[in-house]
Every structure is written in structure tokens, then in C-alpha cells.
Design a protein around this nucleic acid. Structure first.
Lengths: 255, 255
DNA sequence: TAAGACTGTGTATGACCTACTCTAACTCGT
DNA sequence: ACGAGTTAGAGTAGGTCATACACAGTCTTA
């Protein structure tokens, strides 16, 4: 058994590097947790989560599969570590830009992280964040929200909303680019969600949906059609509403 | 090959039951897609996504594993079908309750769906919704938003935000109950995220986080601690902000 | 220098998804 | 009524995956 006595869950200890008790014997380790996690991130970056198997990972490192289990107790544990590593340190806040701009920059940076590591979107968000990088990001958005008069728990809730927004928006971006790229590769036209909906949205059964489809709320002329236009209007709509809502509360709090 | 000539993607055809060309020969089918999908939902409901394997599913139905592949081309396809089936038909809108109450009720109903089928939260949201039930839900929230002066694409974006909110909130609920239940079963105390954060949030490295932790933004006294209090304050905070933001835009639009 | 601990290896197991083949059942046109 | 064609489900088998376990070699420490 590996007793470290911190009382923290094992994954958290690994995340924070609290397992580095000095060696008490045995061969000098040729591998390291950092190398493993780094290689895992790289592998997932290039081939997606499906490409990240313990055997492929070990092979890439030049070790046997089972050697990885000296550093990680399960693949799930490794995924948690890889996620925190992929997220990386948070961006610095511009100190005097106002809380709203700070939140916007933070959300944009988060989306950029997901764009670079799309496999992070495939991971089910199982537990609340506990890694140093995840907490770093959380700290930064809480700091940005420090410019408001919200209570601390309200800032926390707002931070969660912002993080979710970034994740969702990144998901849309990634899906779109994937579909576009696949269409270009295979020659088949990209399955056009707008066209599909327009076809399926029966006017009697789905009146509101049919109206939206007819108005081009999605589809070839919708604002979310091409990657280029993606940033223009629709991109920031949800974020703007969310920040408006926070701003309204802030104004109310200030009296 | 199975040419149906609708031009729709294969999964979509299955979702909408467009594959029911009459039989042209062969034994009378003893299985059916509906039975398979229904059993899959049931299996996932009781044992989670991990319990849903093609072999277990077939065994429960009294058929061989490979027989399922006469109805479904891959497990992924089955998951899409199971998801739409689990979601079920949308709730009816109260006609004259106002758009805000409508959206709130819709979000609550969505969370209830996720509570009943927590495995749906484990599915990576791969593509945009296209199943009849998913489109039904989308139609209902668009209808509720019909009470605003928003443009159609703005309603669509708002609907996405609301759906994401419901999903995220359900995720939190499910995580919480899971942790609580596991703690009760094993006797070990539930890993208290608040306590962990409080321990890890160094005042110098994570000042804003440390402040939040000190204020009890999470932790034993935080609003999200027990399942009972969960609904009280924090529960609706994000939704309220979101709806405030939409309402502000609506007021602006109305002049 | 002996004891003990630890690292990486090799082997093995069971679960999983799914491609392919085969047999028997059923429909339809004649 | 019958033969041709089609299909449903069974059976087999292959490949990948996560991981449990035992072993041999290597380094620290007393």
C-alpha cells in the first residue's frame, strides 16, 4: 500500500505531485509520470481519445504496457491527469479591463484550449475539478468576477456557467470543423444539419421549430453556417446574455 | 446495400423509423428495433453505460449478440437511438404562463429526464440533435421563447443555453447523489470537494479561490451541500441570470 | 555486505465490438 | 404448387483493450 497520510483522494495527490516520497530502494526509474501524461496528451491530440490506449501509449514511450501501471493505477486516473495537463495554466487577467471584458477573455481562452485538445470534450465531466490547472482557471475567473458585488457563492455559480458556456461553444466549433474536414476529405457533402431539420420539422408537429427553420435560424444562411461567420453574431450571443444577467444582478446589488 | 432514397443520414432514418420498407422475403423477424432500444435504455438505467454491452443486451433479450446487428449497424448508432428514446416526448407547455415560467419549467423537466437516465450525461454530445424526441423538446422551448421579441436565431441560441444549463445542473445533482450514496454504502465519508479545495487553495497562488473557499462558497456550509438544500438558492441561480439576460434583450427589442 | 524495496517485463485472462459464414424460414412470381 | 431469391438469427472467430499477477534484475540503506 501507498500511504501518504494527506487524507486526500489518490488522484488529487497525483495531480498535485504529492506522491514524490523519496525512493527507498529499487532501480532508478526510467519513466516518469510527467512523461507519461505528456505523451498521453500528445497521443490524444493527434488521434483523439480513441487513439489513446495504454498499449499504444507505452509503445510510443518505448516501454511495456504494464510499466505504466507503476505510475498510474488505472486508465481513468491517467485521463484525469491528462485533462489537467492539457488545460494548462490559466491566462493572466488584464488587471484593469473590467470584469466583463475579463470574463469574455477568459471564456475565449477556454474555448481555445478545447480547440487545441478536442478530446477533452469527449471526456464525461465526472467530478468537480481538483487539479492545479483547473483550480488555476477557476481562480482567474473568480478574480475577474471580483469586480462585481456578487456574493462568493454567486461568483462560483457564475464561474460554472461561464465554463459550461465555453465548453459548449467549443463543442459546436469542433463539431463544425470536423464535419467540414470530413466532407473535404471524403468528397461527400457535409451533412447539413439545417437542411435536415428543415426537412424533418413538420409544421403541425413542430410548429415553433418549423418557424425557426423557415426563418433560417440554422441552415445555409444561418449565422452558424461557416466557420468564418461563426464568430460574428451567434458566437457571442449566449455569453452576452449570461453577462447581461450577471450585470443586472450586480447593478441591483450596488443599489 | 440499403438504399432508401431519403438522402438523410442512416442514423436519422432509423431515428424516424424510415427504414420500414416491407419485408421482401425471409423469416418473420422475432426481434424489433424498438425492443432493442427499449432494452438498452433499461439496461443503462439500472447499470449505467458500463453495463450496456451488446452481449449483455442480447442476452437479456434472449438472442445472440450478432442478431442485434441486423437492426443496428454499430453500438454508437444504438446509443443515439437509446438517447432519443430515453429523452422521451417533451412536456406540454402551460399556454398562458409567460415565457419565463415556460423556460423554467422546461429546464426543470429536462433535469428530471437526466435524473432518471443519468447515463445520458456520460454520452459525449457528439452531433446536433436530430431525433424526434430531441426535436420535440427543442420545439417546445422555442415555443416558450415565442413569447419574446427575439429573432429566430436568437431563440435558437437561447434554447441551446437553456439545454446546456439543464444538463450541467443535472450533472451536479447526479454527481452529488452518487457520492452520497457511495459514501453510505461503503461507510467511508464522502469526499468533500469543499474541504479539498479549502485545503488546496493556497492564499498566494489562488487568492480569489482561497477567498471564496474561506467564505464557504462551497464546502460543508455552502448552499450546494446537501441534496435538500440543493434546490434552494444555488440551484436556480444560473438559470435566473440567463433568463435575466434574455429578458433584458427582450425589453430592449420591444423598445 | 546483506536485506529489503522497487522498477520494468512477460504472460495471461476476460471483456468487448464486430466481420463473416451458414442454415433455415419466409415471400413472391410463375 | 413450386422454385428462386431474400432475409433472420446462430455460430465462430479475430482483434483490441484494460489490467491482474509473478518474476528478475537493480538500487538504497543499515
Amino acid at each position: 500500500m501507498t500511504e501518504t497520510g494527506t487524507g486526500l483522494p489518490p488522484v488529487v495527490e497525483l495531480l498535485w505531485g504529492l506522491r514524490d516520497r523519496g525512493r527507498r530502494g529499487g532501480p532508478r526509474p526510467a519513466l516518469s509520470l510527467d512523461r507519461i501524461v505528456g505523451a498521453a496528451v500528445e497521443l490524444a491530440d493527434t488521434g483523439g481519445l480513441a487513439a489513446l490506449s495504454m498499449s499504444r501509449l507505452a509503445e510510443g514511450l518505448g516501454f511495456t504496457t504494464m510499466s505504466l501501471y507503476r505510475y498510474v493505477s488505472s486508465k481513468d486516473e491517467l485521463l484525469v491527469l491528462a485533462l489537467d495537463a492539457a488545460i494548462g495554466p490559466p491566462p493572466e487577467n488584464a488587471p484593469d479591463a473590467g470584469w466583463r471584458a475579463g470574463c469574455e477573455a477568459w471564456a475565449a481562452a477556454l474555448m481555445e484550449v478545447y480547440r487545441r485538445h478536442p478530446w477533452a470534450l469527449e471526456l464525461p465531466i465526472s467530478a468537480l475539478p481538483a487539479g492545479p490547472n483547473q483550480l488555476g482557471w477557476l481562480d482567474r475567473v473568480l478574480a475577474a468576477l471580483g469586480g462585481t458585488a456578487l456574493a462568493e457563492w454567486e461568483k462560483m455559480s457564475s464561474a460554472l456557467m461561464l465554463a459550461t458556456y465555453g465548453r459548449t461553444q467549443a463543442q459546436l466549433m469542433v463539431d463544425l470543423t470536423r464535419a467540414t474536414r470530413r466532407a473535404a476529405e471524403t468528397g461527400t457533402p457535409a451533412p447539413d444539419w439545417g437542411a435536415i431539420i428543415t426537412r424533418l420539422a413538420d409544421r403541425d408537429r413542430f410548429p415553433a421549430l418549423a418557424r425557426a427553420a423557415a426563418a433560417g435560424a440554422f441552415g445555409p444562411d444561418g449565422p452558424a453556417d461557416s466557420m468564418d461567420e461563426f464568430g460574428a453574431e451567434e458566437f457571442g450571443f449566449g455569453l452576452a446574455r449570461l453577462l447581461d444577467g450577471i450585470e443586472a444582478l450586480d447593478r441591483g446589488r450596488r443599489g
